[in-house]
């Protein structure tokens, strides 16, 4: 999407830059996370779940709200190592 179209695209209220990801493979590495999510825009921060309850989840924070929307639109249902990613906007 060229930047001009992005600049005036309105965004629904629930869209924001923090994407909560579920159903990640437990063994996924930082490099893989940055590779998969970094394709859609500059990453501000990624927090990976490391405890029993939070394993397989992550918070992916983008610098730009349009990149976050682009990532969710493309990565929700994306197959990683046989598991389908669930990407939601963090509320």
């Amino acid at each position: 999407m060229n930047t001009k179209a992005r600049a005036n695209a309105r965004l629904p209220p629930e869209v924001n830059r923090i994407v909560f990801v579920r159903n990640l493979p437990f063994k996924i590495t930082s490099e893989e996370l940055y590779d998969i999510f970094g394709k859609y825009g500059a990453l501000r921060q990624i927090r990976k779940g490391i405890s029993g309850k939070t394993k397989g989840t992550a918070f992916v924070v983008y610098e730009d709200i349009y990149d976050a929307k682009n990532a969710v639109d493309h990565l929700n249902g994306f197959n990683v190592a046989g598991k389908y990613l669930i990407c939601l906007y963090y509320q």
């Binding site: 990453l43 501000r44 927090r47 990976k48 779940g49 309850k53 918070f59 924070v61 963090y90």
Partner: peptide
């Protein structure tokens, strides 16, 4: 508006999560 680290720490849980380090060659596109 850019997030500060403090803001992110307030918004996101730290319990059970670790902030992962970007790989060496990471260049934000």
């Amino acid at each position: 508006r850019p997030f500060t680290d403090e803001e992110l720490d307030q918004i996101l849980p730290s319990q059970g999560f670790e902030v992962i380090k970007p790989p060496e060659g990471y260049i934000p596109i």
